[in-house]
Design a protein around this nucleic acid. Structure first.
Length: 440
DNA sequence: TCTGGGGTCCTAGGACCC
DNA sequence: TCTGGGGTCCTAGGACCC
């Protein structure tokens, strides 16, 4: 039996813990650059504000209803997430951190010791709320996909008290018949449209298709697994997370710029910032990367710009895997030079690190060097590792960006040209001493 | 004026290899 | 004249998730 715990309106709930005045009114949290709505309180949902709505379209509506819009504060949400996950780990044998606000729980064998599962689940909710201030819902079922269904229903029907268990055939059928197929985990808009065209509108109808049909129309083996999970046959096990974090297979960092950029060096400054951040995450995970991708986007809403809006370039690092920011930067600059075209206006850039592995595994070194348009930067040495370690230590202690690559520097006290908007940012209550709440 | 960011998994064609 | 089969790697892109 699996459990799925999910924080209600997670980002909004994090903000409310420290700003009780936000209770009982419409509140939204905005994406980077204050561009779009990414989290909504129940009151904001009632106003009809959709997920992903551009802020400029709902600003007026919010104002009329004395609502609040906040810039996203990932330092706060990340820390609150760690606290929630730590509480969960105290209640069950193992936890899979699935996203910043969701975790799968291993519930096998729990009832023997602790009374009914429903009782246990209610105790977990109470504990998380008491210790972190975050309200949650918990769905329980024999498969992860059904646990997601149960969680969704628990959220939708507050009278259930935030907990729902779907472990009998009749409960399962009743739930699936009432669930639109587009609400099933793994069915996005494309598949929902396709299924509707075949007369399949509910999760129940999807669960009744044949293996051949699922394989043909739902992305091969992925579709068939989905159907089996709806039938109660587990196809996905729990992937326990070590110390509350999930080891990633790829690490990326990308941002929309605060304004359109067209100068190479401005874009390079932005890219340097993003790659530095990605490399920091890479080292924090204890890995090296051997594949680097750089991408650069034009405005996809500008009808004068023909697609493709995003161009990317990927390089398998000829010098072998590395986590050295300076070495990665030297590769990235060449990739950016391949993508950049003078005269075009760019709105966003980013990097992706792939092929992650821990250092020290036998590295395949190039015998003859690489293609001649690539100059291999100096190999990693003990000294560069020490340099990166010192860099990370300083930035952890004195704040992100205390020591950074010179390409990110801007004359005077000007904000960088790529800097995004964040006009409604709340303080980092739990991760900066200066921002700590003082109770008198 | 203003439309997110960070992930996973799968597919497919071409180059290249034996 | 006939011209296989089984791989990997690279690159790009699609679909999905929160």
């Amino acid at each position: 039996m699996y459990g799925l715990v999910d924080g209600n309106n997670f980002y909004v709930s994090c903000e409310r813990v420290f700003q009780p005045r936000l209770e009982n009114r419409p509140v939204v949290v905005l994406s980077n650059n204050d561009g779009a709505v990414v989290s909504r309180s129940a009151e904001a949902k009632q106003l009809g504000i959709p997920m992903g709505a551009p802020f400029f379209e709902v600003r007026e509506l919010l104002r009329r209803h004395q609502g609040h819009a906040l810039s996203s504060n990932y330092a706060l949400y990340g820390d609150m997430s760690r606290r929630v996950m730590a509480r969960l780990a105290d209640h069950v044998p193992s936890v899979e951190v699935y996203s910043i606000d969701e975790a799968f729980l291993d519930l096998h064998g729990l009832t023997t010791f602790c009374g009914s599962l429903d009782t246990r689940a209610r105790a977990i909710r109470r504990d998380v709320l008491a210790c972190t201030g975050i309200p949650t819902c918990i769905g329980m079922a024999p498969t992860k996909t059904l646990a997601k269904v149960a969680n969704r229903l628990a959220k939708k029907h507050p009278e259930l008290g935030g907990v729902l268990r779907l472990d009998t055939a009749s409960r399962r059928e009743r739930a699936l018949r009432a669930l639109p197929v587009g609400d099933v985990w793994g069915v996005g808009r494309r598949y929902a449209d396709k299924l509707a065209a075949h007369g399949i509108r509910t999760a129940w109808e999807l669960s009744q298709v044949s293996e051949a049909w699922a394989r043909k129309h739902m992305g091969g083996v992925v579709g068939w697994r989905l159907v089996q999970e709806l039938l109660g046959q587990p196809c996905q096990g729990l992937l326990p997370s070590e110390d509350g974090t999930l080891a990633r297979q790829s690490i990326s960092c990308s941002r929309s710029f605060g304004q359109r950029l067209f100068l190479f060096e401005d874009i390079w400054g932005a890219l340097t910032t993003y790659l530095s951040r990605a490399a920091e995450k890479l080292r924090a995970q204890g890995d090296q990367a051997h594949i680097l991708t750089v991408f650069l986007s034009q405005d996809r809403y500008d009808t004068r710009v023909p697609p493709p809006y995003t161009r990317s370039a990927t390089l398998t690092l000829p010098g072998g895997p590395t986590s050295n920011t300076l070495q990665l930067l030297s590769y990235a600059r060449r990739l950016l030079a391949k993508l950049y075209e003078p005269g075009r206006q760019y709105v966003k850039a980013g990097v992706v690190l792939d092929g992650l592995e821990p250092p020290g595994r036998g590295q395949q070194l190039s015998l003859f060097g690489a293609a001649d348009d690539i100059i291999i930067p100096p190999a990693d040495t003990g000294r560069t590792h020490q340099l990166m370690h010192t860099l990370d230590t300083l930035n952890r202690r004195f704040g992100r960006g205390t020591v950074r690559a010179a390409a990110t520097a801007v004359a005077g006290a000007q904000p960088a040209p790529w800097q995004g908007k964040a006009q409604h940012r709340s303080p980092a209550y739990t991760t900066r001493f200066d921002d700590m709440l003082i109770v008198r």
